[in-house]
Amino acid sequence: MTLVAEDVTVRAGGRALVEDVSLEAARGEVVGIVGPNGAGKSTLLRTFYRARRPTSGRVLLDGEDVWRMKGRALARRLAAVLQETPGEFELTVYDVVAMGRAPYKRAFQGDDAADREVITSALAALDVANLAREPFDRLSGGEKQRVLIARALAQEPDVMVLDEPTNHLDLRHQLDALGLVRELGVTAVVALHDLNMAAAFCDRVAVLHRGRLAASGTPRDVLTPDLLADVYRVDAEIDVHPTTGTPRITVLPPVSG
């Protein structure tokens, strides 16, 4: 599955939140979206999972405009992991993950054995099987995040869109979550804050700056001191990590005079 954004622009109140952004995630590729706060990362992702219609431009899944597809048909192929979480309704972890089966179901259709297996293995994959009967709302932030990734897995998608999936996660679970996305072999578009994570896990990164695409390409090509100075207004040193061979970004403290 290939996900392509074609000149996507999103305007609100006369201001462009995202402007003329084009990018492509080829089959099985993990593409990172990085950029400072307010750069338009989340807004861009919203146009992928049909939460915000682009003012102009198109989002194509294998050549098909996602905004011309039925929501359910898209949800069977593309799943999103978002920051927003259920609240105050005592849903169990199992209930939350089971929601992921909704795009496959018609009215009055229950979960069959195959659905339960998908749900159970999604719970196991994210290491939350032992929490299945606990109320979602009482989990820690990191546990919630893993449950939401499990829910996306239960949709059995070919493409996953993840908005800062490593927020709230400790180091171990950050690695696990991103490693799992890689392992699944799905096409993935991931908004990330941590540039080192992006460098280690993404095939390519796209840098957004004030709604525009500032750069895109392999982490090695894109993440340069000049770009970081330009986009993030920080001084950074970038070298190749001796063990992993991926770019290592070290942000230098501002020189105080």
């Binding site: 999972y49 049909r50 939460a51 898209l74 799943a79 999103a80 978002l82 929601m99 795009p103």
Partner: peptide, 8 residues
């Protein structure tokens, strides 16, 4: 709202 939309 957003998650529901993302699930179709």
């Amino acid at each position: 709202e957003e998650a529901a939309a993302a699930m179709g």
